[in-house]
């Protein structure tokens, strides 16, 4: 089912543009150029985060220190490899992206961890970053229960991802 979604969206959007007599080819090129600029703009932050995340992950800190709590995480059925991604996700989308890529390289994108990381990356957001940006833009300093609600949503998203990936892909 998943593999139909993108092709269908593409035919629909381009078709709609054609019916509305939009200069689809020109408009496509204009957007694609923006895509180039966007990618170019994130390059520096991706390199910066990749650098930090790689050092952190390859130091063995997770296995060494967090590994002591393995039995606890096993008890609650939480895969420990996902933990750094879950912790960094609200702060930096690039950092969690780098961790996800690392999981793809070590465990494979179609493994349980690979599918789980992909699902989590898609269903959560950089809550703390967005909060700071949006509230900062209108000079709001007291955010009340916004952070708790936002992080709670991310947490439930992660828990839901674990269950859903297990059920739908039969792990």
């Amino acid at each position: 089912m998943s593999s139909f979604i993108i092709p269908l969206i593409i035919i629909f959007i381009i078709g709609y543009g054609l019916i509305k007599k939009v200069n689809i080819y020109e408009i496509f090129l204009e957007g694609a150029k923006d895509g180039l600029v966007t990618t170019f703009n994130i390059t520096a932050s991706v390199v910066a985060m990749m650098f930090a995340v790689q050092i952190f992950l390859s130091s063995g800190f997770i296995e060494g220190v967090l590994g002591k709590f393995t039995s606890f995480f096993e008890l609650i059925h939480f895969p420990i490899e996902i933990l750094p991604m879950a912790l960094l996700r609200p702060i930096s989308g690039t950092a969690s992206l780098a961790i996800m890529n690392n999981i793809f390289l070590t465990h494979g994108p179609d493994s349980f961890l690979g599918l789980l990381a992909s699902t989590i990356q898609g269903c959560t957001d950089t809550t703390i970053y967005v909060l700071a940006l949006y509230f900062g833009s209108v000079h709001i300093t007291k955010s009340r229960h916004a952070l708790i609600c936002g992080l709670f949503a991310d947490l439930t998203g992660i828990i839901a991802s674990i269950i859903i990936v297990k059920v739908m892909f039969g792990f």
């Binding site: 089912m1 998943s2 593999s3 979604i5 993108i6 992206l97 996800m100 890529n101 793809f104 390289l105 494979g108 994108p109 179609d110 690979g114 599918l115 992909s118 699902t119 989590i120 898609g122 269903c123 959560t124 609600c149 936002g150 709670f152 949503a153 991310d154 439930t156 998203g157 839901a160 991802s161 859903i164 990936v165 739908m168 892909f169």
Partner: peptide, 29 residues
């Protein structure tokens, strides 16, 4: 990135992501 890592189905997690995202939004709200 799934595609680049040679996944057999790069779009496999669209549906799981959608379900998870709805649950997350609902719980947050």
């Amino acid at each position: 990135l799934r595609q680049a890592a040679k996944s057999i189905n790069p779009t496999a997690t669209i549906v799981t992501g959608l379900i998870a995202t709805f649950i997350a939004s609902f719980c947050g709200l």
